[in-house]
Design a binder for these strands. Sequence first.
DNA 1: ACACGATTCGTTTTT
DNA 2: CGAATCGTGT
Length: 802
Amino acid sequence: MFPQSDAPAAADLPILAGLNAEQRAAVTLPPEHALILAGAGSGKTRVLTTRIAWLLQTGQVSPGGVLAVTFTNKAAKEMVARLTAMLPLNVRGMWIGTFHGLCNRFLRAHHKLAGLPQAFQILDTQDQLSAIKRLCKQFQVDEERYPPKQLQWFIAGCKEDGLRPGDVEVRDAEIRRKVEIYQLYEDQCQREGVVDFGELMLRSYELLRDHDAVREHYRRRFRHVLIDEFQDTNRLQYAWIKIIAGLPAEGGGGAIMAVGDDDQSIYAFRGARVGNMADFVREFHVGHQIKLEQNYRSHSNILDSANQLISHNRRRLGKNLRTDAGAGEPVRVYEAPTDFAEAEWVVEELRQLVKGEGYERKEVAILYRSNAQSRVIETQLFNAGVPYRVYGGLRFFERAEVKHALAYLRLLENPRDDTSFLRVVNFPPRGIGARSIEQLQDAARAAGIALVDAVASLPGRAGANLSAFVAKVDVLREQTAGQTLREIIEAMLDASGLLEHYRADKDGADRVENLQELVNAAESFVTQEGFGRDAVALPLDETAEPTHGLTQSPVSQGLDPEAPLLDVLLPRAPLPVDVDTGETLSPLAAFLTHAALEAGDNQAQAGQDAVQLMTVHASKGLEFDAVFITGLEEGLFPHENSMSDHDGLEEERRLMYVAITRARKRLYLSHAQTRLLHGQTRYNLRSRFLEELPEEALKWITPRHGGFASIAPVSSTAHARPAWGHGAIDAQSLVGAPLPVRKTEPAHGGIRVGLQVFHNKFGEGRVLAVEGSGDDARAQVSFPRHGVKWLALAVAKLTIVD
DNA sequence: ACACGATTCGTTTTT
DNA sequence: CGAATCGTGT
C-alpha cells in the first residue's frame, strides 16, 4: 500500500533524500533529548536544518515552537538560509540566532523585569576595557597590581560562571579587591544603561530563573531546542539552556538536540566547557546518542592522519571518521631550515598548485597557530606578487573612526552613556583637555550623576567648551528626530565634524571611505530588517499557528503566561518589542545594537581570487581544496603556554585536528629548524604532532642537502604516547621511519642524541641533535633553564651524565 | 595638545 | 623584531 499522496510517510519526505543512515536517524529522532556527535565534514549543519524542516513538515511543531542557537551570526544566517531554501515556510516565527542575539531580543522585550532601559546599549570588548580603565582611575585602583585587562578577564570569567559579585568566593585580599571592582563596574554599567556581552547572557538567565511566569511561558513554548557547536558552550550558556528547556526533574520542557564535536573543542581558554556534553547526557538522561562519522570532505590519507592524531587524546567521547573517497594523495611534510625558507617553500608550492594543477587560489589556505607567524608568509607572498587575504584583523564596526561615529550616535540615544561621551568629547579636537575632563569626572562622581548632567556645574572656559559640546549633541538630537536612519547618520557625520576632520587629514582617505560605508551599512540594515516598509507593526506570522492554545489578546496584558508573547517576540520582526507596552526600539537604537552584536566582516575583499591566510582557530568550520599548516614546532604548535598541562596539550591536539580536517584534497605540513621570534633566533624541535601521524599517509619532501639535518625526536616520559602510532616506541621504528632522521655520527666525544649532558654554565640538558664533524661538530642541547642551544663541541665542555 | 623617544610585551577570539 | 602603550619634553 502506498501512503496517501497528500500525506507522505514521514520517512519518505523529499527533504530526507540523500541523507545517510546516521544523518537520517538523527533527523528523525523522536522528540526526546539527544546528543549528536558530529565529526568534521559530516554534514552537521545539514542535519540540524533538516531536523527542523522535518519537525515542521511532519507537524510535530509549529515555527514558534523552535529554538535554535548558534555561536556566530554566520552560522545562524546559514541555518536560516538553508531552511528557507528547503521549505516554502516563513521562518519568521522561529527563534534562530546566536546566544547573544537571542538574549538581546529577550531582554529588550522584558526590559522592565530585567531592570534595564529598553534602549540599553551593548559594550563590546573594547568598550568594556575602556569602561574598566575609567573606573580604575576614578577609584584609584593600582593598575600595576590590578591590570585592567586582567580585571576584564576576571569579570567576564565570573559572568561566564554565572557569578555576581556577591557570589564570588573571596579567598584572599586580592580577590576581595577584584570583587569590589567588579561591583563598582556593575554599578557603573547599570547607571549608564549599558551591558556587556556576558551581561546579556547572565541577565537573561537570571530573568528566567527569577520569574516563574516568564520561564514557564518559554518552557511551554519551545518544544524543540537545538544547539549548534555544543562543545563550545560555557557554564552560563548551558545553564541558560537548562533553564529554558527545563530539567527532567523540574518537570521538563522542550526536547533538546545538542550537536557538537568534543574533538573540535578549541575554546577552553575563553570559558568553553567540553564537560557540558557529558553533563548534558547525565542531567537530561539522554537516551539517543548518534555519531555522524561519515566524512564528505577529505580523502582518506588526510582523514587517517586526523584520526590517528586525535587518538592520542585520552579524554574523548570516541569517534572515528571514515570516507568513501579514495586514499588520495599523501600528506606532504616539509622541513625548512628557517621560517623564511618555509615561507618561500609555501609560496613556490602554491604557485605550482595554481599554475600547474589548476587549483583556485581562494581554495587554498595557509594556516598558522598564532597571528605573528603571518608576517613572514605575507612578505613572501607580497614579493612574489601573489594575491592573498588575511583573516582576523580589525572588523568594520571595530575601526576607530567607525567607533567614533557610533559613539555620537549612541549619545543621541542615551546622553548618559559616559563611555561614548568620553570617546568623542574631544574628538575631533575642540580644546577640551584632560584637565577639564578630570574636573568633570570629579564633579559627576561627587554628585553621582552622568557626565552630561555635570557639565552645567563646571565654571569657566572649561565649562563653556563642554557646554558647547553638549549643546551640539542636543541640537543634533532635536534636528534628527523623526528622520530616517540614513539622514541621521549623515547629519551626525556633518555636525560632529568627523568627516571634515578626516578629510583634512592627508592619510584619512580610508577613514572617510569607512564613514561613508557606515551610511551604506545602515541603509542595508534598514532594508534587510525590513522596517522601512512595515514600520513598527507587529506582523503576526500567518503560517505560525499557535500550538499552545494561546489566545490573541492585547500585548498590554503583560506577563500573563497565556498572553501572546509568542507574537511579540518574533525574531524576524522589525524591531524588538516591549511585551508590556508594545514599545519598539528606534531604528537608530536597533542599528547600534546590530553594530555591537555583529562586528561585521573583516575587510572582505571578496571576489578576488586570493589565498586565504588565517589562524587555525579562524579556520574552524571552513574547508579548502588544499591546506598548508605551517610552523609545526614544539613551543609554537603546541604552543609553549599550553604544553605544561595535560588538558592544554589535548586542546592543542584538537586544534591540530581541526587544522587537518579543513583539507579536502591536499595537505601540506611544515616546520622550520630556526625561527625569528621576539627578535631572537629560536631553535625549535619539530612538533610532536608530526610524530603522531600515520607514517604511511605521509610523504617527506624535504630536499636532503647536507647542512640542515633534521632533529631526531626525543621521546621523553613527559608525554607517554606511542610515538609512531602503532605499538610502542622502539629504535627500529625510529630508524626505519621515512623521516629525514640524521643518523648520529660516530665520534663526537661520545655525545649522542638523547643523552643527558652537563654544561658548566647551563647545567644539565638533553642532546637533541648532533651535526658536523671535527672542529665543526655541534650539538643542539635543550636546557630546562636556558632553553635550546647549539653548542660547538670543540669549545663547550660537555660531560655525559649517567 | 601633541610629538617624540623609551618602555614593555608579546596565544588562540566570538558575541 | 614590531606594536602598543607610556612618559617626558616642548
